[in-house]
């Protein structure tokens, strides 16, 4: 099932090995219908997630990024998600200044037994990203103006601006 009839978007999910990845597995084993836009990357712990992973995904063309880990106080490594929570919240609030819509990034906590909750999270988030549509992309090619400036600069003193 896709969240809507429109074309599939690219959503990257960073899931911790111990809870959310298990939760997604539980949802799959229970055969809960889920949208197929999400590509899951399994990480050892939500504390492993560098906020730059999320920014890199968004800059490289992901339409949404979903991070999910163990519930706070339930981390396999005792305190990984406490650090993650601070980092992720900081990034979420900062994104506005970058011009990237903060709604394209979400983080949540899903345990291994919460298959139903996982289905809910994925469906809701995918619906939200579809409502936002494909993400506007920063250009990945160099500006023509840069080459326009580089060519005369390479000419050295023969450059017209030295005249």
């Amino acid at each position: 099932m896709s969240a809507s009839d429109s074309r599939e978007l690219r959503i990257v999910g960073f899931l911790c090995n111990w809870c959310s990845y298990g939760g997604a597995d539980t949802a799959g084993v229970a055969r809960f219908a889920q949208p197929t836009d999400l590509r899951i990357i399994r990480v050892p712990c939500s504390g492993r997630i560098d906020p730059l992973f999320i920014v890199r995904a968004l800059v490289n063309g992901a339409d949404g990024v979903l991070v999910s880990g163990c519930h706070p106080r339930d981390c396999h490594y005792a305190e990984g998600n406490f650090y993650a929570r601070r980092r992720l919240e900081t990034l979420k609030r900062f994104l506005d200044a970058t011009g990237i819509d903060p709604a394209r990034f979400e983080y949540t906590w899903v345990s291994a037994s919460e298959g139903q909750r996982w289905q809910h999270v994925v469906t809701e988030f995918t619906r939200r990203i579809h409502a936002l549509g494909p993400a506007p992309l920063l250009r990945h090619v160099s500006d023509g103006a840069w080459f326009d400036a580089a060519a005369p600069a390479a000419a050295g003193p023969a450059c017209p601006c030295h005249g």
Partner: peptide
Amino acid sequence: QENSPAENFMFQMIHVLHLAG
């Protein structure tokens, strides 16, 4: 190594996030 707005922007994101707090 490419000099594009996206890569330059990404560099600034590295700088800002490494200086968060």
